[in-house]
Structure formats: structure tokens, C-alpha cells
């Protein structure tokens, strides 16, 4: 499978997107891939694949994204993708409390398959739905700490924090340890304050940094 440049092979990383039906997994990926948003993506059936090359300061990586179907019925397909991925992005909808509660199951499933040998990011999507918010940023952050995973809020619709999400993931990828911790912290601070101002969810304290 020849791919990547002739200079050095492109490092490839697999990311699996998990979360309930209609929380915005496909939308987040589409915003990241094509910088666009559409209200009417068909429900994902089974698993979709997408790939994007990310140019970081000191290296280039290729991200292979597995977009899973959120409905319970399709769940038997997912474990093999979790086993295969080095990153699991667990998404919930900040305007849907149940989807937030269900993230625990997803994270546990990832831990069952991969133990701690995996990067997990908890993502609260749809921050644009300000009036419908059911899950505060603090709750999201607390859950991320409880499970010892990364956390960020996004809005695929508004294009908010999507790049930040992927930069955050890229910075945490194996082989990226050389990146300074300070820089990672910076990134997180920026994200959270931005999230807070957008969602008017209150003050994002410095405690809201990445818990990993």
C-alpha cells in the first residue's frame, strides 16, 4: 500500500467516532474535512470512512476517520473499529442530556477494548443551540475528569472549535510527545474560554484544562 510522500512515510492514525444517534459525528467530520455544514446528512448506516492529511508545525500526519452509526442496532459492528483505532472521539449533544449520559457506556466500551492504550476525547457538540442546552460545560468537564479523558465543546454548525479538536488530538498522538506540554495547555485554555463565551455557560476556570 504505497502512500505518503517519497521522503518519509506519512504517519497514519485511525480515529473512531462514537456517540448516540444524531449528536453530530458526521457533521463534525464534514466540517473538519470540507469546512461545510448541512442540516440534512442522511443517518450513517454501518461505518463510513474518511481521510485527511494534517499539516502540523513539525510533521504531517494522515488521519483516517471512521464515522460510526449511532443507533443501538448497529452497535455490533463497532468493536472491531475501536480495537483498530488509536483515538476514540466520543460525541454527545449538549442539548440532549441522554446522549451525554450515554457517553459513559461508550467510554467504557473503548476501555474494555483498548484499556488505557488509546486517546479518548469527549466532545460536547451543538453549542450553537444556546437556548436548548441541557448539559453545562462544567458537567462535561467533570465527566472527562472522572474518566480521565480529554474534553472540548464544539459546534459543527458554527464551525466552532472543530480545528481545535483535531489539533488537540494531533498533539496527543503517539510520537507527538515532543510537543511541549505548555503548548497543549495553551490550546486547551483557548478552546475553553471560547466555548464558555459562545455558550455563555459561565466562567471557564483554569481548572477546565485537559484532564489527561
Amino acid at each position: 500500500m504505497a502512500s505518503g510522500g517519497s521522503v518519509s512515510p506519512l504517519a497514519k492514525y485511525k480515529l473512531v467516532f462514537l456517540g448516540d444517534q444524531s449528536v453530530g459525528k458526521t457533521s463534525i467530520i464534514t466540517r473538519f474535512m470540507y469546512d461545510k455544514f448541512d442540516n440534512t446528512y442522511q443517518a450513517t448506516i454501518g461505518i463510513d470512512f474518511l481521510s485527511k492529511t494534517m499539516y502540523l508545525e513539525d510533521r504531517t500526519v494522515r488521519l483516517q476517520l471512521w464515522d460510526t452509526a449511532g443507533q443501538e442496532r448497529f452497535r455490533s459492528l463497532i468493536p472491531s473499529y475501536i480495537r483498530d483505532s488509536s483515538v476514540a472521539v466520543v460525541v454527545y449533544d449538549v442539548s440532549n442530556r441522554q446522549s451525554f449520559l450515554n457517553t459513559a457506556r461508550w467510554i467504557e466500551e473503548v476501555r474494555t477494548e483498548r484499556g488505557s492504550d488509546v486517546i479518548v476525547v469527549l466532545v460536547g457538540n451543538k453549542t450553537d443551540l444556546v437556548d436548548k442546552r441541557q448539559v453545562s460545560i462544567e458537567e462535561g468537564d467533570a465527566k472527562a475528569r472522572e474518566f480521565n479523558v480529554m474534553f472540548i465543546e464544539t459546534s459543527a454548525k458554527a464551525g466552532f472549535n472543530i480545528k481545535a479538536l483535531f489539533r488537540k488530538i494531533a498533539a496527543a498522538l503517539p510520537g507527538m510527545e515532543s510537543l511541549s506540554a505548555a503548548r497543549t495547555e495553551d490550546l486547551v485554555d483557548v478552546n475553553l474560554s471560547a466555548a464558555a463565551s459562545q455558550s455563555r455557560a459561565g466562567t471557564a476556570s483554569s481548572a477546565s484544562t485537559c484532564a489527561c
Binding site: 448541512d38 442540516n39 446528512y41 443517518a43
Partner: peptide
């Protein structure tokens, strides 16, 4: 609720 979510995104 599942149905309501899917109906608007049927055959877009």
C-alpha cells in the same frame, strides 16, 4: 424520538 430525528434527513 429516533424516528423524528431521521425523518427530516430522509432522501435529502
Amino acid at each position: 424520538r429516533q424516528v423524528i430525528v431521521d425523518v427530516p434527513r430522509t432522501a435529502p
